[in-house]
Design a protein around this nucleic acid. Structure first.
Lengths: 311, 311
DNA sequence: TTCACACATCGAAAATACCGAATGATTACA
DNA sequence: TGTAATCATTCGGTATTTTCGATGTGTGAA
């Protein structure tokens, strides 16, 4: 019969290996040295290997001890984080840390998160935006609860995450009011020799649009690839070029960036994803967000022809 | 006086939350239900919060319990990995898991690792190659001990790693024997209108060479960007184009790929890095590798002019 | 050598982990 | 509806472990 290992012993071992000696650790733990000495001996006996080697009147880690300490470091770092974040106040229960890929239109994000905030008045929301890759690693180490992104989670890093589609929209092309009006007439041929601002070079949207342009035999000069969708729209607002944005948020785009829809890029969609850590499949917020997204989908994801637009 | 928390209690809590009930956990732990029940009550008392809520005759996790379980999952996953890898045989002590960025010339890697293997006959070496980004995340979760790469660790993911330069070399351009001989004469002007194969688009080497070509007013057609350095060289061997490789390994390149050095790209260097987890600064292998790299540096990192080459 | 220091060992105490028996409450099923 | 099975818990007693004081041993410094 093999007994379970005693994690308190392992904790003592960790304290000693950090303090450098049993004597120092005993002070930190409010115990006497002989107690700790005995406990560690028991752990060594259970493991069948020495953790420490006596060097002079000092204890030094054995090879095995050194390896074990690395695991202990990780383990008890988590334990301390657990106690720090959950002892005392209860805000951690009501704080939702959401990562937002900077390629996402902010008005869409608002649309997704607003109902959640409104439904439960004492939720604290923390938003962090950045590139999907950065945010994914944050998600993996529990610094984030959710991640909203325009690209599905690639598991090239072997992180355990779930990816749910929460929205889909056709892409429209926008330009300043008078400019858009000119281009609407002969869309999409009118785009020829126009200037254009696109999202990041590696984004699926950017690639899809470039493919579409090629397919339509349109020759446009792409003046810039911009990772941040807000910045891209700001460029467009300044008249630097035509820019794409989801049809789904055309009203927002029109009013806040003073532009008009020229037309719709046929057969090009942008999808949006909610990425959650594997463990959290039954999380309250995520499920609510998914439900809401699914509801919205049926009513709002309607393709629009350029003729129905106005400004 | 606040007592330390009892990690064995936490372990019982984890077992119960996994098993779904105290009854099932008690079987797995070879204990009676009342024991576990009492221990968990003690833990709850110590924490000042309920972990479970009675729902019928079942226990369900409270909000606080759910959060705590996530920490427990992480903690004891590490603990189990610790026991799995260190119990039983002692090979873990002698197994060095090295990640190798696929952009690295394999002959350089061999050169670095060979002396280590030879010096200690019972070392087991495990090599894993892939993109630096993938390997970095592996390093962070202890799946790798070291990482050899041609790009320094960018800490855009907030992983705790150390980065040491272990080598540096000028870049040379290579082509098939007869082709190289033709081009040597008027190098670098002779490169005009030649075809070229380069490493990955985002690699510093690739960028540096493209910049250099521009600077020299050379117009070459880049037929391909290849992430894997071996594949790039294979392309070059097939005569698809001129390709770059470190001067440091010119002899290897010449013999194994049946090509000759055309000339050296002035002022373009490639550096090589050893990336280690923060915890492992005093690791035996790493220090030895660093020492050896430093020794090699003084003798081997000599720039070579194209005139001194032969084939 | 002597002293101070650090860890280990021993034996007794206090603390606690554990179990058997019994209770109450819930669910499954006849 | 009633009965049996299941599950968590409470209580009291026992076994084990944890802890400490006293003591021993080896080390390094004065």
């Amino acid at each position: 019969m093999i007994t379970n290992i005693n994690y308190n012993h392992f904790y003592y071992f960790w304290m000693v290996s950090n303090a450098g000696s049993i004597a120092k650790a005993s002070k930190a733990l409010h115990l006497t040295p002989q107690t700790i000495s005995a406990q560690i001996s028991m752990l060594e006996q259970r493991l069948g290997k020495q953790l420490f080697i006596r060097k002079g009147r000092q204890l030094v880690l054995s090879d095995y001890g050194r390896v074990s300490k690395q695991y202990a470091d990780d383990m008890f770092a988590i334990a301390e984080e657990w106690l720090e974040t959950t002892q005392g106040n209860d805000t951690y229960l009501k704080t939702l840390k959401v990562g937002i890929s900077d390629a996402l239109p902010k008005s869409l994000v608002t649309r997704w998160l607003a109902p959640i905030i409104n439904s439960d008045s004492n939720i604290k929301l923390t938003c962090i935006d950045g590139k999907q890759e950065e945010l994914l690693s944050q998600l993996a180490i529990h610094k984030l609860d959710l991640l909203l992104s325009d690209t599905p989670a690639d598991n090239s890093y072997n992180l355990k995450v779930f990816c749910h589609e929460i929205g889909k929209s056709n892409i429209g092309l926008y330009a300043r009011h008078h400019h858009a009006r000119e281009l609407q007439a002969d869309f999409p041929q009118s785009l020829n020799n126009q200037r254009m601002v696109l999202p990041g070079k590696d984004s699926p949207t950017s690639r899809a649009i470039e493919y579409w342009l090629n397919e339509q035999h349109l020759n446009v000069s792409i003046v810039s690839h911009v990772d941040d969708s807000a910045l891209m729209k700001a460029f467009g607002k300044q008249g630097l070029g035509i820019f794409p944005a989801p049809i789904l948020i055309r009203d927002d785009v029109k009013t806040s960036h003073e532009v008009s829809l020229i037309g719709q890029v046929s057969n090009v969609y942008q999808s949006y994803y909610l990425i959650t850590p594997e463990r959290m499949v039954s999380d309250t917020f995520s499920t609510r967000l998914l439900e809401q997204a699914r509801m919205g989908e049926s009513t709002e994801n309607s393709a629009v022809s350029p003729s129905t637009t106005d400004d």
